[in-house]
Structures are given as structure tokens and as C-alpha cells.
Design a protein around this nucleic acid. Structure first.
Lengths: 159, 159
DNA sequence: GCAATACATGTGCGTCCGCACGCATCTTAC
DNA sequence: GTAAGATGCGTGCGGACGCACATGTATTGC
């Protein structure tokens, strides 16, 4: 075996990381699918719509420009552009011009959108609970939350 | 405030679960994208191809039928069917009939596939390390691995 | 003031993915 | 033995997604 090099992780550590990552990927595939189906079946709202409504509702003045909205829902700006158009068609979102910058467009949640969000929220929360959180102990949830936030922070720092 | 109902999670617990789930989703989106790009740029191998090669190589006799392969790489059987066809075109996988069941098809890794896998493996492992594990402490990795495996086990049990 | 640049957004297009369906084969009940 | 159902797989099709590019607007350097 090759002599250890500076700051090179040991084999056991690599395995642990891979095992955690593997579990992470499989969990994502499994839980996202089930959650998506459950929420959509019970509320008629796709998960992506729910996310958009959630972010808009939580935003200042209940509206956001496209790019910031895309970042918050973790989708491409392109995708969000189309998503918002569909939701305008469904009357859940309005597109408003920004008087301060005529390039920009605000997406604003409508009353109908807020109503849909209020209906869907408990279903969504229950879904997260049922398909994810309920299988974990409080301590584990804390570690997962904090650990993954660390990972995200590192990525954002590195840009 | 409403009196607590039987086995209903408290608000704080719900929030914790949602926070963990939120971090989970954002981490997945961020890390998968970066990892995928890094591995593909350095090895020319899409992540899905790598996964297929990995599972085939680890399988008994280095081959698997389509359905079991799909389950292991966490994709639909449909998708795997097309994936394997592409990889046959690239000479990394062979499709072989199963003499015991003429409906079935084996996907078997070829020498070229094994070579590609050997080349890509260190890049992939380093990518996981760089984009994921290195930002977490050993203890956190263990908790994440074990916790998510619990979630998966519960889902498989519920089926 | 104006050209050069940066920025916010929308659109054409290709990729990845899974569902619905169909075909061939195997298994089971009789 | 055979009809009915189950199983393994491939394909047509449409949805979700993001990249490259185009358009219109703001900002900056001079």
C-alpha cells in the first residue's frame, strides 16, 4: 500500500462518505417520488407549484422577481419562467412589471394562490412527516439539518 | 391553542422535520449538479452510466436482468432499457439472452466497460469527497448514513 | 450624451425521464 | 393440454428541465 499522503482521507473514511452519499441518493429518489404523488393526489398541486407559492407567500410584499424566485425554489430561471406562466393561466400568480426596472417582472401570489397554498400546506407538511421525518429521531433530524446546511454553506462560499 | 392530540407531532418537531427536508432538497440539487458535471467533464461518463457499470460490475457473474438493474440504479425499467442500449452502442455493455427465460435479457459489463469504470471510479470517489463528505464530520456522516437507511428501510417495509 | 457593457427575462431546442401500452414468454388452474 | 393470467421487456409519447441564444432595458466610462 502506498504511504499516506497529506490530507488524503483514509479508506474507511472514503467508504463512509460514499455510503452516506449512496443512502442520500436513494432516499431522495424514493421519498421525493412518494411525496410528490401524495401531495398532488390530495391537493391537485404539483410540488413545484407548491414551492413557488410558498416562496412567493413568504416573500416581502408577497412577490419576487424571476431570478430570486428561481434560486429559492432551486430551479433554473428558465424553468421558473414557464412555471410562472402556467400558474398565471391557473390564476394563482400574477406577473407584474417593476416600475423601477422595466426589464424585470414580479411574480406575485394571488388570492386564489394563497387559498390553494393554505389548502395544500397541511397536506404537504403531513407528507414530509409521514415519508421522511417520522422515521428519524429528533437528534438525527438536527444532525441532518445542520450537516447539510454546512455542505450548502460551503458550496455557496465556493460559489 | 388546541389541546395536543394523540401522536400528533408538536409544532417544533414539525418545523425541525421541514427544515431538515428543505436542507435535504437543496443539498441534493446543488451537489448532484456539481458532481455530475465534474465527473462527466473529467471522465466523459455520465453519472447514470457510471451507476450502471458499478452495479453490473458488483453483480454476480457481472450481469443483471433489466428490472433488478433498474432497482439498483434507482431508475425506471424503461429508462434503464434505453440506457443499456446506448451503452451497448458504446461497447461498454452486452445484452445477452437468458437461456432459462426467453423473455429476460441480461445486461453484462464488457472489458471496455470495466476499463471505463476503473478510470472513472477514483474521479467519482474524489468528487463525492470534494462536494459532499469533506464538509461533514465523521460523526455526522454516520448519522446521515444510518438515519437515511432507516428511512429507506421503512419505505421498503411499507412498500 | 452616447457607445459599450451588464443585466433581467423570454424562447427554440435537445436531453432525461417515466407512464401507458403492446408483444412475447412463462406459469397456473383445470 | 390449454386458456387465463402473470411477468419481462421494448417503444410511442408527452412532461420536466436547462442551455444557448435573442430581446429589451439599465448602467457605466468617457
Amino acid at each position: 500500500m502506498k504511504p499516506a499522503e497529506k490530507s488524503l482521507p483514509q479508506a474507511k473514511t472514503v467508504d463512509l462518505g460514499v455510503a452516506a452519499w449512496s443512502a442520500f441518493l436513494r432516499t431522495h429518489a424514493t421519498v421525493v417520488r412518494r411525496l410528490e404523488r401524495a401531495v398532488e393526489a390530495q391537493t391537485g398541486l404539483p410540488l413545484s407549484w407548491y414551492d413557488v407559492l410558498l416562496e412567493l407567500n413568504a416573500a416581502d410584499e408577497r412577490r419576487l422577481r424571476m431570478q430570486p424566485l428561481a434560486e429559492r425554489v432551486v430551479l433554473s430561471r428558465t424553468r421558473v419562467s414557464r412555471l410562472v406562466d402556467e400558474m398565471v393561466g391557473a390564476g394563482m400568480v400574477d406577473k407584474l412589471p417593476d416600475p423601477a426596472d422595466r426589464r424585470a417582472t414580479f411574480a406575485a401570489i394571488t388570492d386564489r394562490g394563497r387559498k390553494a397554498l393554505r389548502t395544500a400546506a397541511p397536506v404537504y407538511l403531513a407528507g414530509i412527516e409521514e415519508h421522511f421525518s417520522s422515521h428519524l429521531r429528533r437528534k438525527q433530524l438536527e444532525t441532518i439539518r445542520d450537516g447539510l446546511e454546512q455542505v450548502l454553506a460551503a458550496h455557496h462560499a465556493a460559489e
